[in-house]
Design a protein around this nucleic acid. Structure first.
Lengths: 218, 218
DNA sequence: TGTACATCAGTGAACGCGCGTTCACTGATGTAC
DNA sequence: TGTACATCAGTGAACGCGCGTTCACTGATGTAC
């Protein structure tokens, strides 16, 4: 896992097959949904026997957990890369939208209907924290002359999720709305609720974003 | 279906068993998710044999469609009842939240991750239209001195979803944001993304609602 | 009110299917001396 | 460089299971005269 550099051919091969299994898993997930993910079906597509996959994943749940972890990591990487050019909420928003449109099923695996009975492992919390921290940085950097909100004061006393980030209440509030509003538009768009309504989802997304980044929003 | 009054005992019995099947379906849906819905399992819980259910539903898909239809109808009824006291966006918002919290799985069946390959029947469109119309009424009645937005003008030319509702562009825009912003908060709350973050979801919801109903929001 | 017939709810057996997972095994690949 | 041994990827058979769905049937309930 955390070996540095010295990779034997066998290890390289293992990593390669694991990746190939996950690639097929994503395909199947897109075709039939998360709950229809079948190890046997994946094996068949790869021209292998079913039990062979147990060399690479202990069971079905471990595969799904890996997929979820990879999805979160992918978003965290995207955010990190975007934030490398400096804190920019608008850039993050567009990165989020691109990331979501690139693979809607991946987005839903993370932010969609929760899988009943499934509980994410602890290490995912760290990735979520990083995503949130990047978002907080960007919101704290926004020009702000907005007054303190009642919910803002509540957040000041309930900022466990922000860790030790030195953001003002207004920035905390804005980071949260940033998340939920963009998710609101994105998830309904991806789920197809806008089809047939007539308007352009991209323009709607842009309008919500603009209101979020306006200096004197309220 | 649309018979008026004259209901034979047999018809009454049929309707009763159908309702009982659906009730068990909701239970199972809550326990294991929409895709794990099994006719055989429902029958077993009811103390019947599996094939017996085929007297009441042509197949599994018809059952799911019924559940989705009922969910939409339930929300439409809730909205209609709320709007009976006059157009009130704030009241609608709280009705929506109550409705969602009352049965999260029902909410996700409607607004959550779409079931792959499933397509809702046409008559559901009518129910959606009614829900949207009620929301538009309430938004049009809000005190508004907000200027025209760019997206508002776009909506004016792409208002197929609004039918022949005589709402101004600003009201159209507000109805859409009303929907997506509340969905953004609600869906993330119901999916459990706020647990462990520290703040009170109800206060967050209230804050978003307040901003939506403010007269001079922008 | 009583009999003859039609309707219909529910059963049990059976179909083929795919699932996750285990086990004992073969054969190839890598390691140690 | 060559041999002996250990590691490990992948196979095929087998397990029990539950699924959706069909079919021919029994028995109860309702209807018509």
């Amino acid at each position: 896992m955390t070996d540095t550099g010295t990779e034997t051919p066998r290890e390289r091969y293992r990593a390669q097959v694991r990746a190939e299994i996950k690639a097929h898993a994503w395909e199947q997930l897109a075709a039939a949904g998360a709950s229809a993910l079948s190890l046997n079906a994946i094996a068949k597509r790869m021209g292998m026997s079913g039990p062979a996959l147990y060399r690479y994943f202990a069971n079905r749940d471990e595969l799904i957990t890996e997929l979820i972890r990879d999805a979160y990591r992918s978003l965290a990487d995207t955010f990190r890369a975007t934030a490398a050019a400096g804190p920019d909420a608008s850039a993050l928003a567009h990165a989020l939208r691109d990331w979501a449109l690139q693979d809607p099923h991946r987005y839903f695996l993370v932010y969609g209907t929760p899988v009943p009975g499934y509980h994410a492992p602890d290490d995912i919390t760290d990735i979520v924290r990083e995503i949130m921290a990047t978002l907080l940085d960007a919101c704290a950097a926004l020009p702000s002359d907005s007054p303190a909100t009642p919910f803002g004061s509540h957040l000041q006393e309930h900022r466990r999720w922000a860790g030790d980030h030195p953001a003002e209440p207004a920035a905390l509030h804005r980071a949260l709305t940033f998340w939920t509003r963009l998710h609101g538009v994105l998830s309904l768009e991806l789920a197809g609720h806008f089809t047939g309504m007539g308007f352009d989802p991209a323009l709607f997304f842009a309008a919500e974003l603009e209101e979020l980044t306006e200096a004197s929003a309220r």
